[in-house]
Simulated scan of single mutants.
Amino acid sequence: MTIQVAIQPDLTTRQLTSRIIDENEIFIIIPLLVQLYPNLPTETIKSRLEEIKNLNWACLGIFDKDSLVGISGYWLNTRLYCGKYLYVDHFVVNDAFRETGVGALLMQKIKEIADQNLCSHICLDTFTGNLQAQHYWSKHQFNIVGFHYVLQN
């Protein structure tokens, strides 16, 4: 599927495409994950991707021609309190493509995947210090409904 989107600041029209990233090419997402986790070694990201790519996890990519400009990993699962849901995992837009419609297209596609899989909810976590992400999710009608607690072993 191809969608025309006006890109700022030069307002040229880009051909953005979306597709699920195949597990054999999953390492193309590493530069965007490094953008999200600058203090996490690339080798750690790679080894964790190697593990999760074989689980119930997938990754949607947004491409500008052949360049990957946005990703959203996701899990499909079922919980007692809400039934079937899609969990957004690592929603990242290349810094150079922020405020250009890439995030909106990524969100639209995630919602379509949730609908196709009969999910009743779309859920995610964001770090307490990531105010930009919190603003983004609130702007897209996501509600804060709880706390995510972690006990490190």
Results as ranks from 00 to 15, higher is better:
Lys109Trp: 12
Gln116Arg: 15
Leu106Met: 00
Leu68Ser: 13
His135Ser: 02
Gln132Lys: 11
Glu23Asp: 13
Gln4Met: 13
Leu76Gln: 02
Leu16Glu: 08
Val69Ala: 03
Ala114Arg: 02
Gly101Val: 03
Asn117Trp: 12
Gln8Phe: 15
Glu51Val: 12
Cys119Thr: 13
Gln134Met: 14
Ile21Val: 08
Lys53Pro: 04
Gly83Asp: 05
Asn24His: 09
Asn143His: 15
Ser18Trp: 12
Asp115Ala: 05
Leu55Ala: 07
Cys59Ala: 11
Glu23Gly: 05
Phe142Gln: 05
Cys59Arg: 11
Cys82His: 13
Ile52Tyr: 03
Val145Thr: 09
Cys123Ser: 06
Thr44Ala: 12
Asp125Ile: 03
Phe97Ala: 01
Ile20Met: 04
Asp64Trp: 10
Glu43Lys: 02
Gly146Leu: 00
Ile20Val: 08
Ile71Pro: 03
Leu16Phe: 15
Phe142Gly: 02
Ile113Thr: 14
Ala114Met: 00
Leu118Val: 06
Gly129Tyr: 09
Val93Lys: 03
Leu49Asn: 10
Lys111Asp: 12
Leu68Lys: 06
Leu68Asn: 08
Asn39Ser: 06
Ile3Pro: 00
Ile122Tyr: 06
Gln108Ile: 05
His121Val: 08
Gly83Phe: 02
Leu105Tyr: 01
Leu60Met: 07
Ile113Cys: 13
Pro38Met: 09
Glu23Leu: 12
Ile30Leu: 03
Asn54Trp: 05
Gln132Leu: 14
Arg19Asp: 08
Asn77Val: 06
Leu33Trp: 11
Thr128Pro: 07
Gly73Cys: 00
Glu112Met: 14
Phe91Gly: 05
Ala96Gly: 14
Lys53Ile: 11
Thr78Glu: 12
Gly129Ser: 02
Ala133Gly: 08
His148Arg: 07
Leu49Tyr: 15
Pro9Thr: 05
Ile110Gly: 02
Ile62Pro: 02
Gln15His: 04
Lys109Met: 08
Gln152Ile: 01
Lys65Cys: 14
Ile20Phe: 10
Leu55Ser: 02
Asn153Glu: 13
Glu51Ala: 15
Val92Glu: 03
Lys111Arg: 14
Phe27Glu: 12
Glu112Asn: 04
Arg14Thr: 13
Gly61Gln: 14
Gln141Glu: 10
Asp95Ser: 07
Arg14Cys: 09
Val150Asp: 04
Asn130Phe: 10
Thr100Ile: 05
Ile20Lys: 10
Leu80Phe: 04
Leu80Asn: 07
Leu106Ala: 01
Asn56Gln: 08
